[in-house]
């Protein structure tokens, strides 16, 4: 059995979600190859080759692959799957977009958001916003799996796999990349940060969201997250949303400021190591899962927190 892992990267850097997905892949098979799709991504392929346990790195490059258009990715991956028994991708926006398309082309079912590999055919995945865990077994000859990266430790460094360049077949482009707006930030990426500071509807405006959370995040070297309510109201960009239908994070420390703790929000952060909640309502559901709860108005609590941090 051989497994192909689709790398997650921005053409310059490999994200640690890839090494985490390799860990899941190694639980299935010792023969794990990594596929890097993009443009100008040689350094990424080089980094993937250094992940311990990786047998070989495949690199395909084109303009469509730079934007990771689903049609282009599918065209490369489907023929490659003749040589593999499983495809694993991290459950990122790219992985979630392309994996089911590939699965359908292979006439195989997909296992979404896997958090545990029990054996070569049995997996655990959260359903109902993480309120239940489903153990499923799949007898599909070819498996397509998206992996929840926060559930796996990154595979170590120290590998020395070879990098093989493969052709990126031309696709008839029925989808075209137009533009991209990347939220610029010097802070760590939300999915990879050791500390996350998140704000909710209580913050009341985009200006207040920034003024209150940015200094705290900068002081702690933290990434910033948000509840859906804060994103919907325009206080924070969409890619800050933590939850069932946003990003899943599991940092060492998660600080929720003015967030009530709806199940959809908890689904994205309840596996954090330590959870802190600051909320003026002592009955807010977030306190049921917080390790440390501070019942207070954030307007006084956050400045006091800054002062106490020194």
């Amino acid at each position: 059995m051989a497994v192909l892992v689709l790398a997650d990267h921005d053409n310059a850097h490999l994200r640690d979600t890839t090494a985490k997905t390799v860990t899941a892949a190694l639980a299935l098979s010792p023969d794990v190859d990594v596929l890097v799709l993009g443009q100008g991504a040689q350094a990424v392929a080089g980094a993937a080759a250094k992940i311990a346990g990786v047998r070989k790195v495949l690199l395909a490059e084109s303009a469509e692959l730079k934007a990771m258009l689903a049609e282009a990715v599918t065209t490369v991956v489907v023929p490659l799957m003749a040589g593999y028994d499983a495809l694993l991708t991290p459950a990122t926006s790219v992985g979630k977009n392309v994996a089911p398309r590939i699965a359908a082309k292979l006439d195989t079912s997909q296992l979404s958001d896997v958090i545990e590999v029990i054996d070569g055919s049995t997996f655990v995945r959260p359903i109902y916003a993480g309120n239940a865990l489903e153990t499923v077994s799949s007898s599909e000859p070819k498996k397509v799996i998206t992996v929840r990266p926060t559930a796996f430790k990154p595979a170590a460094e120290g590998g020395s796999a070879g990098v093989e360049t493969i052709a990126a077949p031309a696709v008839q482009a029925h989808a075209r990349f137009v533009s991209e707006t990347v939220t610029a930030s010097d802070r760590p990426e939300l999915g990879a940060a050791r500390i996350v500071v998140s704000g909710g509807r209580a913050l009341g405006s985009a200006e207040e969201f920034k003024a209150v959370l940015e200094p705290l995040a900068d002081r702690l070297g933290a990434a910033i997250g948000a509840s859906r309510a804060a994103v919907d109201a325009g206080y924070a960009p969409n890619d800050y949303q933590v939850g069932q239908t946003g990003k899943v994070v599991a940092p060492d420390l998660y600080i929720a400021v003015g967030i009530s703790g709806a199940i959809q929000h908890l689904a994205g952060m309840k596996d954090s190591k330590v959870i802190v909640a600051i909320n003026k309502d002592a009955d807010a559901p977030i306190f049921q899962i917080a390790d440390y709860g501070l019942v207070a108005d954030y307007k006084t609590a956050v400045p006091e927190l800054m002062a106490a941090l020194g």
Partner: peptide, 13 residues
């Protein structure tokens, strides 16, 4: 489209 890094705009036939 809402993607991990922000927003991506596509044109599809």
């Amino acid at each position: 489209r809402e993607v991990d890094g922000g927003l991506q705009t596509l044109e599809v036939d």
